[in-house]
Design a protein around this nucleic acid. Sequence first.
RNA 1: CGGGGCGUGGCGCAGCCUGGUUAGCGCGUUGGUCUGGGGGACCAAAGGUCCCGGGUUCAAAUCCCGGCGCCCCGACCA
Length: 553
Amino acid sequence: MITRASQLFLPTLREPPADAEAASHQLLVRGGFIRQVAAGIWTYLPLGWRVHRRVEQIVREEMDAIGCQEMLMPFLTPVELWQQTKRDFIEELFRLEDRKGTDYVLPLTHEETVTFHAREIQSYRQLPQMLYHFGLKARDELRPGKGLIRLREFVMKDAYSFDRDEAGLEESFQRQRGAYVRIFERCGLVTHDVPAEPGMMGGSESRDFLAPAGAGENTLVTCENGDFAADIEVATTTPRQAVFPEPLEKPEEIETPEVTTIDGLAELLSIDTAATSKAMPHVTQDGAVVLALVRGDDRLEEAKLAAALGEPVWPADDDAIRAAFGASGGSLGPVGFEGRIVADFALRDGQFVAGANRDGRHLRGVQADRDYEPEFADLRESAATDTCPNCGGALGFQTAIEVGHIFKLGTRYSEPLGATFLDDDGREKPLVMGSYGIGPARIMATAVEQSHDENGIVWPRALAPYDAHVVALPGAEEIALQAAEMLAAAGLDVLLDDRDQRAGEKFADADLIGCPLRVTAGRKSLEDGKVDVRDRATGDEKRLNVAELGKEA
RNA sequence: CGGGGCGUGGCGCAGCCUGGUUAGCGCGUUGGUCUGGGGGACCAAAGGUCCCGGGUUCAAAUCCCGGCGCCCCGACCA
């Protein structure tokens, strides 16, 4: 198929928009792929929508290949479904009301709706089932941005599996996981399949597909030897060994006037920062104060704390700290604290300097299980000085985009919504579910992040808006058209730049738009009947006869 | 929610601090001439509620107050 640039709505920009920082944001806007309507709300222009559809088609083929069935569920959703699963209080949820006063939500995902339909599954004989759709999602994000990376409205391919039991779920989960690996591979992306944090979906196990990128919102932790990779929110890596002073029989209070930081404390006492502990009071939804304790040189990973507690928490403010500890931040510690204490595993062995819960004083020789009774959990954020838990190798940290996320949901949705089936033992049981999401827009953004140069986008072949971009220079319009027809006959989608523009402008646009092949017909072609075929990725160029184009492509 | 920045023709910006004729510049757009393998040159022209509302003033893009929108950095997710 041939598309003529002269008739295409393709507004390319010479300069990037002032508010764009991420490479994908700049290039997709400059290349005329997308335009912003409001924060996190975008239109796909003709070129951008072509790319989106190519991503969709790859996803569709891989879903169909594992027996997942396409359908379409609605955007407007009665709030009752979300009330039944108790997700109606989620802050990101858009709510609206019709003229009769009936409440609706715009779905964050479609677990509720698909489970509503799954109530029609009656018997184990109908299982397993896998369903999917490409549906709009709406999320009232606090901070949308970075082009297509964080959107308030977007198309998601969400798939759902229904099984009799955990073993069946495991099988469905692995089928989806395999499909995801193939999808990202076909899209030409580098991704890592890593353990993740289930967040608001709930459920037992989840895995993220993280794609390293210049701009992103996740941090991927990997081992130099390739035997470890995880999202930093769940990464458990090995902290460096602390250097401890001589142990004490019991804690000893010491004067530490003016010292409110770990560095100041370690310096005053001439000890390793890793031989201190850091108290970070948090409050739960119902106002209880929980003390999170990590080693002095560590940072608390809040996602891990929330996971350990099983509920979200917020850092306590000064008033709450005073009330619970009788001291201010900087002198807090576990000894004598009445509430719940969660300590990082790094504090299990050894004696640490901790706040004394009296301003200007600390305790030396504080030992877990002797001087205070904590629950232990992994709370620390992986640090650059950590080593691989599997081989001791050095770790690397990269920003990454989450392009896919798959969850084992279990009965989190089927139970509240009453989606049950009759098993072969004659008993009624809730369906065991999984859910599997991919954002095509993020795949687009990731492809650009991972593959571009100073001149523009270098699309992976499978995602390019057109396979070939034929540049017609003045005088050679006829040859250009013949070349385009040859390529089209060979099954390629062709963009024919027949605009009345200067050569430089056409080349610049071709580089910016980033189709894999560029074919130029110009004055030289009139002499020898050949055209220049240039590979966008490598820059390699060769002169070919028009007749040879088909087989070359 | 906390912090920072911005809002002026389609795009990128200047002007604002220190109010004062017709609000400028580059790019783009339209018409013309010459050009024509990496964003060319010259001539002519079109195009603006200076984010919105209020206030101060003889006079507001400019000063004050209040909104709204957008971007970036810390707590959420495909």
